[in-house]
Amino acid sequence: MNNQQYLARLKKLLSSMPHQVRDEVLREIQSYLNDCGDQDMALLEKFGPPEKLAQQYLDGEVVHLTLLQKLSSKGRLGLSVFGAIVLVLVLIVTGLAYYYQRDAFNYADPQALAGATRDTKWLSAPWDGVSLIKVSQAEVVFYWHQQQQVRWTCDGNWLAQDQLIRNGTMVFQQAECLVYLPTRPARINVNQSKVTLIRPADHVDVKVSQSNIRIAQRSEGYQYNIQGIDNVDEVPLSTQGAAINIDINAFQSSLVPYVY
């Protein structure tokens, strides 16, 4: 090890010192070399191994360590504790995110729905006047019932019947709604929304843009005609002989089975 290598090594070993102090230490050793008048004199011989010299300098020094160095200095225990804390935080955040993204109750369970909406105010309108349902920036869950009316309840942007249905189009916008449709074919256009279809009882023609569609299946299955969704692995495949068609034309959207 020549003197330059020695000084470089010492500089590295003293990296935890305040840099001004460290630089002064190195300058002083360089000055010592000049005083000797022999630049070839080996520092290693006079000052001993740089590790030992650094230890002497650092003895009693207020060491400025990075967080990682502090953890390393406490060994594996410190790193393990740090890792465990990070893991617990990640689990808490993930759990909270899952909890808040989860549905308020199981929409596919009629009893859960009935219990949750017992005191809810419902509105209804004749279905014959509706040819299209538009869902825009909203969260809507669709059910099918045996009645001839469309029935709904909403939170958020609450609209009366005459405001909600105009010129044969029913619009759910910026609201969270539960909707019962009669057992008749329905056309639904969905834009930037989250829509859940609970066991459709008749033909549904859905156009979807930048939205999330969830479907709870009937045991009899459906005949699907899906366009515009690349990954259909999780989508329920068509059931042979199924009587009900579900047509979906999607753009930048996801389609998944409904799972509570």
Binding site: D35, F47, Q56
Partner: peptide, 24 residues
């Protein structure tokens, strides 16, 4: 300064090397 101090201490019979004096 350090170099001179080391010389004076050694002359006084105190056995001391550079690796001890400068950190001191």
């Amino acid at each position: 300064y350090g170099f001179e101090l080391l010389r004076l201490l050694n002359e006084a019979g105190i056995s001391l090397n550079e690796g001890t004096l400068y950190p001191l």
